[in-house]
Amino acid sequence: MAAAAVSLNALTKRFNAAPPSVNNINLDIKPGTLVTLLGPSGCGKTTTLRMIAGLEIPSEGRIMIGDTDVTRMPPERRDVTMVFQSYALFPHMDVYSNVAYGLRVARRPVAEVKERVAEALALVGLGGFGDRRVDALSGGQQQRVALARALVMKPKVVLFDEPLSNLDAKLRRRVRGEIRALQQRLGLTAVYVTHDQEEALAISDKVVVMNAGRIEQIGSPHDLYHRPASLFVADFVGRANVLQAQWDGHAVQLGEMSLPMDSPLPAGPVQLILRPEGVRLARNGEAGLSGRITDLAFVGGATEVSFDTALGQVEAAVLETEAAGLCVGDTYRLAFDRSSTHILPANAV
């Protein structure tokens, strides 16, 4: 087995009373990959990150960075840097001194500090900003300074704690692209915390979905979206319709419809996960589930349509070209794309 850059072993953190904020987490992070911890607020993702940084001490378990056990090592001795949600730029220092801080603490020679800081600032597109006051920068620029300050140390692992949550929506998309590009170009190992599933899917090699202190699922963005391991993941990553159905080993029986599908599940009652973009209007002669339109909302590229069916509410994202002429109250037959469906055991949560 190739040595993991970071490996978490039965990691648990308790604050005061039970239940633990982080409960028995096991995770190996390969060198050069970006792994995202995704989950709702309070799921323990930030606490996990802070334990990797050394800012919290685990109650149980072990943290390895490379071959070193760092579980009880203070943060300043770990080869890890962090980009904070609030950026945590030192307000009494200019941009240069902020970026140079870590190198100066490490007593690097002045010439080297100069060179590396200039390099790091150029990397994030802030060359020539060295003598600015940090409070004279825009939010996006402050974010880049924080990034440069973390990267200049050339750490084994860079940690990101919701780094984009203070930027507006447009800027967020751009910066996340830049972070991903930098990470791949420099071959960085990165752990990235976010509660935004779209962000997680867009930039990660691997996504760890967490809920209530536990890992729900680990997988590539594609896996998570198309093969969620639990109802929680299905619902948290993207939008999902959940319908009760019967599985006979080859196809899912849904009313008069039959959807052929591959799944190792034993035959019996199942829950069918159905992505809204996989719901379309059935063509002539095609079998389908009958549904009456209860709501229409134009959201830009598509129209969100709510159908009332015999099996419950079904949400569909219909392309604009197909949505023309739809009216509330009309009844249509609905067909489902096979690639957008997935089944879970009936008792899965």
Binding site: G54, E76, M82, Q85
Partner: peptide, 20 residues
Amino acid sequence: ALEEAARTLGASRWRVFCDI
């Protein structure tokens, strides 16, 4: 977070007190 940032950048507790 300012003090934590300084620590992840390698500063000891006493150094953090003096610098930050």
